[in-house]
Design a binder for these strands. Structure first.
Length: 590
RNA sequence: GCGCCUGUAGCUCAGUCGGAUAGAGCAACUGCCUUCUAAGCAGUGGGUCGGGGGUUCGAUUCCCUCCAGGCGCGCCA
């Protein structure tokens, strides 16, 4: 039988008391105390209940306390101020809860009662465009969410949803044609086959795209040509399809390497193009069903509603000159996800500036009955700005490539190791591996630590800092625990039953270890990785305090020492779990 | 013009259905390494929570208004 969290146990007791007083048990929620000087836990429900019933809050609090069962687990129950109920549990009850957590493979975290089919759509890189720092947020937030939902027991499918079918493909085709018109891909009379070797490398593509994009922006004729090429590609012109295949293959191989460096993986590597064959039929069906109509020469699905505060433009499925848009493929993707994958929940981890687009797509999906019963959710995140407050650019004015950013933080970590003369006697491959893990942790924590929806300032200096509230601090804490456990094991010391705490720092550590299940649940419910960051950083701080005050290996009382070893194991398991949910790897030593 | 978002310590940010004395890191200053890793620990100073109203026993949190900034608004993604 799965164990219940401390908060869960206490709330259940308060809930019983509320019910027996004839009060709404919704108000019985127990939370971590804001006033540790007055109690370890608090319940503010008496105030809310009193407000609803227009009664005296202190009287209600007193009645609730009087009705509270299992009072022997509390060392103090009191009412303060307007009617706050403050609770402190006995050290023995706290220790018994620790022992219970130790015996539970999931550390007290229940799985969701009804597992859902969840699709997480994130990353969203475009073919030919290099991964830059702007892709970092979607990638690591999305990855954290897929890990969280998987941990909660849901059936998760992650999909990169590659941008491989839009206008940029037409631009690239035109750009290459300008440079190498003699290639067979451009000869409409060429009967095939086409060369198996790509005419371009990833570096070529990354160089060509900005040039092509600027040219089209500046010249309407070039833009027309790019649109025409895009339409021809989408309609299946063989030479263009062959060329496009090379573009995609070359890009995907580079992307796999970038995502691999970050430790992020996807179940599906589908792109917009995957849905191309069903687009024409889908549009025909929607026209026949009366959902799609012609407007200003384009085929659209109107999505506005009379209750809107502002006019919501229709979702355009087909441009007036032919050719599909990303809204078209998005709609087809929803039909596939709710149909073939039976998705209950689809999360789109995309920049918040695209909110209107998702509003249009989600409404359209509902109107045309593609959404079925699935919840479609735009997991919006804020812009990453430079220190000047504007979207981040390098000094050269370009965007910083993710590959370069990762190389930079890894190099900074190595530099730090040299400065502090750490790991000098480790072999080179281990040093490299530690630097990579530290660098990635720095990067991910600096990003995930901020609330998802807020814009934040990206300062390269932040990724060179390894002190204070950073990823490396968390790794360091876990590594120190591992080190102690290793030494203890070498000395033949074994963990034993966790005993009641003997010093305040130890009690604080135990209390913080109790919060885990609620923190994970809240992070999942709010889709907010920063809740995990807050929790794990505080836990690491509390552990460090305990570590400073209590010398584990030098402890003379063997029962206390083995209790502490067990406590360390438990703390390490929480660190390992949360860091893995955040997508960080812990070295054996650092 | 309309809509959405943001404004919290010098800087970067938390603050989880309204709750008690608003937190952390960095920066500044003071201590702690013959003792389990100092990427650490202990401590000091630093705030009219953008301004003003309102609801409430109670507002950083909810409502209104003003100021400042950002973003979005039919054939790009």
């Amino acid at each position: 039988m799965a164990s219940i969290s401390m908060i869960g146990k206490l709330t259940a007791l308060l809930s019983q008391a509320f019910v027996s007083c004839g009060l709404d048990p919704r108000h019985s929620r127990v939370i971590i105390s804001d006033r540790p000087d007055l109690g370890q836990f608090q319940c503010n429900g008496a105030l809310a209940a009193a407000k609803a019933l227009k009664k005296n809050p202190r009287a209600i609090a007193e009645a609730v306390i009087a009705a509270l069962p299992d009072r022997e687990i509390f060392s103090d129950i009191s009412i303060a101020g307007a009617g706050f109920i403050n609770l402190t549990i006995t050290d023995e009850f706290l220790a018994s809860h620790m022992r219970e957590m130790t015996g539970d493979g999931r550390l007290g975290c229940l799985k969701s009662s009804q597992p859902k089919n969840v699709i997480v759509d994130f990353g969203g890189p475009n073919v030919a465009k290099p991964m830059h720092v702007g892709h970092l947020r979607s990638t690591i937030i999305g990855d954290c969410l897929q890990r969280l939902f998987r941990f909660m027991g849901d059936n998760v499918t992650s999909d990169i949803h590659l941008g491989d079918w839009g206008l940029q493909m037409g631009m690239l085709i035109c750009e290459l044609k300008r440079r190498q018109p003699e290639l067979p891909y451009f000869d409409a009379s060429h009967a095939g086959p086409y060369p198996g070797e790509s005419p371009v490398t990833i570096d070529d593509l990354e160089e060509m795209y900005p040039v092509a994009s600027a040219r089209c922006k500046g010249d309407e004729n070039e833009m027309e040509a790019a649109r025409a090429a895009t339409a021809e590609l989408q309609q299946g012109r063989p030479g263009y399809r062959a060329l496009w295949g090379h573009f995609v293959a070359v890009s995907v191989s580079a992307l796999k390497s970038d995502f691999g460096r970050l430790g992020v993986s996807f179940d599906l590597w589908r792109g917009e193009s995957y849905y191309n064959d069903r687009l024409a039929g889908m549009i025909e069906g929607l026209k026949a069903g009366g959902h799609a109509q012609v407007s200003e020469g384009a085929i659209v699905v109107p999505v506005s509603s009379p209750s809107d505060k502002k006019e919501i433009p229709p979702l355009i499925l087909e441009k007036s000159e032919g050719g599909y848009l990303y809204g078209t493929t998005d709609l087809a993707t929803i039909e596939e996800r709710t149909g073939e994958f039976h998705a209950d929940l689809v999360l789109y981890v995309v920049d918040k500036r695209q909110h209107l687009h998702f509003e249009q797509v989600f409404r359209a999906a509902k109107i045309v009955s593609f959404a079925r019963n699935a919840e479609l959710e735009h997991i919006a995140f804020g812009t990453m700005n430079g220190t000047d407050g504007k979207p981040f650019k390098t000094r050269a004015g370009g965007v910083m490539k993710l590959k370069d950013l990762i190389a930079m933080v890894t190099e900074n970590a190595l530099e730090r190791m040299r400065e502090n003369r750490i790991a000098e006697d480790f072999d080179e491959s281990e040093r490299q591996s530690i630097a990579r893990q530290v660098g990635i942790a720095t990067l991910k924590f600096a990003d995930l630590g901020n609330h998802r929806t807020s814009d934040y300032v990206f300062d390269v200096a932040n990724f060179s800092r390894f002190e204070g509230r950073t990823g490396p601090y968390l790794l360091y804490t876990a590594v120190r625990i591992k080190s102690i456990l290793r030494r203890a094991s070498d000395e033949g010391l074994v963990p034993g039953p966790i005993l009641a705490p003997t010093v305040p720092a130890e009690r604080e550590l135990m209390l913080n270890l109790c919060w885990l299940p609620e923190k994970i649940r809240n992070a999942t419910a709010e889709r907010a990785p920063n809740y995990l960051c807050d929790f794990i950083y505080t836990l690491a701080q509390v552990f460090s305090r305990f570590y400073q005050q209590c010398h584990i290996l030098r402890e003379e009382d063997p029962a206390v020492q083995s209790s502490w070893l067990a406590l360390l194991q438990l703390c390490l398991r929480e660190l390992e779990l949360v860091l893995s949910l955040l997508g960080m790897e812990i070295p054996e030593r650092m």
